[in-house]
Computed example of a mutant assay.
Amino acid sequence: MVIELGLSGFAAVVLAGGRGSRLGGFDKASIEVDGRTLLEHALDAVVDAGEVVVVGHQVPTERPVTFVVEEPRYGGPAAGLLTGRDVLLRTFPTIAVLAVDMPRLTPGTFRRLHEAAVGHEGAVLADGAGRRQLAFVVETARLDAVRPDHEGQHGLSVRALLEPLDLVEVAPAGGEARDIDTWSDLRDVASEGPSLE
Rank of each mutant, 00 (worst) to 15 (best):
M1R: 15
L5K: 08
A11T: 03
L15K: 03
A16M: 00
A16H: 00
G17P: 01
G20V: 04
G20M: 07
F26K: 13
F26D: 11
A29F: 05
E32H: 12
L39C: 06
L39Q: 08
E40I: 08
A42S: 15
A42I: 11
D44P: 08
A45I: 11
V46Q: 03
E51M: 04
E51Y: 01
V54S: 12
G56I: 06
H57D: 14
H57L: 13
E62Y: 05
V65E: 06
V68M: 01
V69G: 07
E71Y: 05
E71L: 08
P72R: 06
P72H: 10
G75W: 03
G75A: 09
G84M: 05
G84W: 04
L88H: 10
L88I: 11
L89P: 12
L89R: 15
F92A: 03
F92K: 01
P93A: 06
V97W: 02
A99K: 06
M102H: 12
R104F: 14
P107G: 09
P107F: 09
T109G: 07
R112S: 02
L113F: 02
H114W: 07
A116H: 03
A116K: 04
A117V: 00
H120I: 11
A126D: 07
D127K: 00
G128I: 00
G128P: 00
A129Y: 13
G130P: 05
R131E: 11
R132E: 15
R132C: 15
L134T: 13
A135V: 06
R142E: 14
P148W: 01
P148I: 03
E151A: 12
Q153M: 14
G155S: 07
L156N: 05
A160Y: 00
L161H: 05
E163L: 15
E163I: 09
P164Y: 14
L165H: 12
D166S: 14
L167R: 05
E169K: 05
E169I: 02
V170F: 07
V170K: 09
V170A: 09
A171D: 10
G174V: 09
G175V: 02
A177T: 00
I180R: 10
T182A: 02
R187V: 15
E192D: 12
E192V: 06
E192T: 07
G193I: 05
L196R: 11
